[in-house]
Design a protein around this nucleic acid. Structure first.
Lengths: 411, 411
DNA sequence: ACAGCTAAGTTCACGATTTGTAGGAAGTGG
DNA sequence: CCACTTCCTACAAATCGTGAACTTAGCTGT
């Protein structure tokens, strides 16, 4: 249970946050509408908005007539009040993007990774170099960058030092956050890539409007981002959401994590292709890379009985995995993404929904809607960039650079 | 995202809540210690405590000397400020207990249920009758009862009208909360029995001190209470936690919920006994009722190879089920309870821990501790009685009966 | 017995904050 | 130019936490 006092300052920050969040989320709003939406008095809205206007976080955006009275002045978060940078550190590339506060991309750089494993120092170098380049390309000053969000393909422990464990990158307990923070003054936030993609979908994609949701990602591996009560759930040490390694068949197929019967071993693209090869007398699905082979497999369902069976089973397994989420979490929405998930979902969403219904309890199943991700895979960096924005909104628009005291006190 | 203003009154209520919660949770405390713990100024502590003292929620409890200075006056929540009633509506009985605020049992009544199904009207009658009886037996007035918490063996939808779906009772969409509220002025809170037992363990049992935990209950059926960030997680429509009906073996044993391969079908007492009978050439485990048979099965592990195998498998399945929780939630603690769970846990806790380790990812597994419930099954009613107490603490000690305005405004 | 000391608890003025109210501002219609 | 509607703001009142000064209560040593 939280034991934290509230002071009169917290109150003002909280109300600033409420106003700013409303403006950001619900587009241009007049002061009048703000009052209704936040249940703050008109006087307070006026006072708080005045402050936000003066600081430049919020700006006027035209006006709208009102049945013969004084027209309402619309307010919006000033897109150029500051900028945010999102970085994606993946197995095959490091991507860095710079956005304004309206989430318009102003600059992008990407560095392909040729080596099998990405040394942490090299990753730091790429991210910092990318940061400098996008700032330069966008023609802004570094002072205007409110924060840098970094998405990593691995478990990220605690927001404090952001220790990263990433099997696929060969990282074990790398203090990635601290390493980045040593190189720049810009506030850093590190998170798991699945979480940032989930965050992006929740804000701008198929998760809009939901407060309890799961974004399930199926690619070569399988993961999920849990959203509870409107914000992402991280567990004790922020490694929650390892849905891919939950047991779906006791003593089943061996998984690369070492355990047996993990969901990932059945519905991850790698696992599906292996299962196909097994059922197909050892002959693998044709195709240059995994993605090509997987697409080919799906396309051959009409002609190959083996393919049809394997894909049908995959939908069944995925449905059971979804049902587990439904029964455990009782979410209002599940969003399916990841490249393999999208390929499957585009073709078999109705079947998938049926499969979930077969495994889930009636009550929670009736309350969940199952949808597909609307944003592409590039949304990982977008989601990472929302981290500093979320902080800005939570803090009620205090510029973390010019008023570091507020942030420091916040956590 | 929450859009809710904060007023100066919310601030005071919040601070009252912080103080009261501290006093309740951390035993008798002096004003001085309270200041340190809540980071409130001494002046505010004095002010707030004065108010709480005057209202009678808090009382002085002796003093302790302090190295030659003025002794500290200890404060505690007055056990007799009010009373709370917890009721358990189960398949075999309706139990009603009355507690003071120190959670001392002052009166208990129980009504055995002979019929196969308990009609909702009858349940209401039993609960109300029990309420009247415990009040009478304890010799207090009905005005002094702060609230009535009711635990039901089924899914409880939303705290508003508390619609209950309970397969085992034969209830479908019964507005149980509204039915109870129609009969009394005492504030009513209805929740799932697994949740209330979990709540009891979190406050007074093996869950003390944890903020992210799961209380797993294994009896004839299987359920779980999820605790995230210190308070119980309920999902969109409060049916979260149906761990027993997550798939652990795809296309496996049929479960009574209609699906196949549910965890409950493997580790629930009923499922275990069925599995034994199947492995034992159709000969069931001896014993009058389920509990006797289950205990007998466990006791025969040393002599019967079949029993050893079935029980060993059970531990394996349970371990995988726990691992799923560990991977998905990253909790800091898992508490095993339920009568069958305790029987298993007393004998095989180390083996269970190993089984979890085999199925869980290294990181989250290293951060979780697996323990046994410390309270008996009667704790269901105890946990139900904590619901009104939790509300009292959240509201900062406003008596919901004498100052209904505060509660009404609170939600 | 009495002053001196120490630590706990209280009082009070102050600044920060929201709110209701009254009034000003910015349009439309006649 | 005036009435009217609607949106926005200035001002006094009320509430609350805080810091500093002050009071209270027990102990210690002489």
């Amino acid at each position: 249970m939280d034991v934290r006092r509230t002071t009169v300052r917290d109150m003002r920050r909280s109300n600033r946050s409420v106003i700013l969040t409303s403006i950001y989320r619900d587009g241009p709003l007049s002061r009048y509408e703000l009052g209704h939406q936040t249940s703050l008095s008109a006087a307070s809205v006026s006072n708080l908005v005045g402050e936000l206007l003066e600081e430049g976080v919020v700006e006027e955006a035209g006006s709208v007539e009102s049945d013969g009275g004084r027209p309402r002045v619309l307010l919006r978060v000033s897109p150029t009040f500051g900028y945010v940078v999102g970085a994606e550190v993946g197995e095959t590339r490091v991507r860095v993007e710079l956005f304004d506060l309206a989430m318009k991309v102003l600059a992008t750089v990407a560095y392909p990774i040729e080596t099998a494993e990405l040394a942490p120092e090299l990753a730091v170098k790429y991210v910092m170099q990318g940061l400098a380049e996008v700032i330069d390309e966008a023609g802004i000053s570094a002072d205007q960058v409110l924060g840098l969000g970094v998405a990593v393909a691995g478990i990220v422990e605690g927001p404090a030092d952001a220790v990263v464990h990433a099997q696929t990158l060969g990282w074990d307990a790398v203090p990635f956050g601290a390493m980045l923070a040593a190189k720049t003054d810009i506030p850093i936030q590190v998170d798991n890539g699945a979480n940032t993609l989930g965050q992006a979908e929740m804000w701008f994609g198929a998760g809009r409007g939901a407060t309890d949701a799961v974004v399930a990602l199926v690619g070569s591996g399988v993961g999920a981002a849990l959203v509870t009560g409107g914000s992402s759930y991280r567990g004790t040490r922020s490694s929650a959401g390892e849905w891919g390694h939950t047991t779906i068949t006791y003593a089943g197929r061996r998984c690369r994590c070492g355990a047996e019967g993990c969901l990932e071993a059945y519905v991850g693209a790698e696992g599906v292709l292996e299962r196909f090869q097994l059922a197909n007398k050892g002959i693998p699905a044709p195709g240059g890379d995994e993605e090509e082979a997987f697409t080919g497999l799906l396309d051959s369902v009409g002609t190959s009985e083996v393919a049809a069976e394997v894909v049908g089973d995959t939908i069944g397994y995925l449905g059971a995995g979804f049902a587990n989420l439904v029964n455990l979490f009782n979410p209002e929405r599940i969003v399916l993404g990841g490249w393999a998930g999208l390929l499957l979902g585009e073709r078999y969403l109705p079947q998938l929904r049926d499969a979930v219904g077969k495994h889930a309890l009636r009550q929670p199943y009736a309350q969940v809607s199952i949808e597909l991700c609307e944003l592409g895979r590039d949304a990982v960096a977008l989601g990472a960039a929302t981290l500093p924005i979320l902080r800005l909104l939570r803090e009620g628009g205090a510029n973390p650079r010019s008023a570091p005291g507020l942030i420091a006190r916040a956590r």
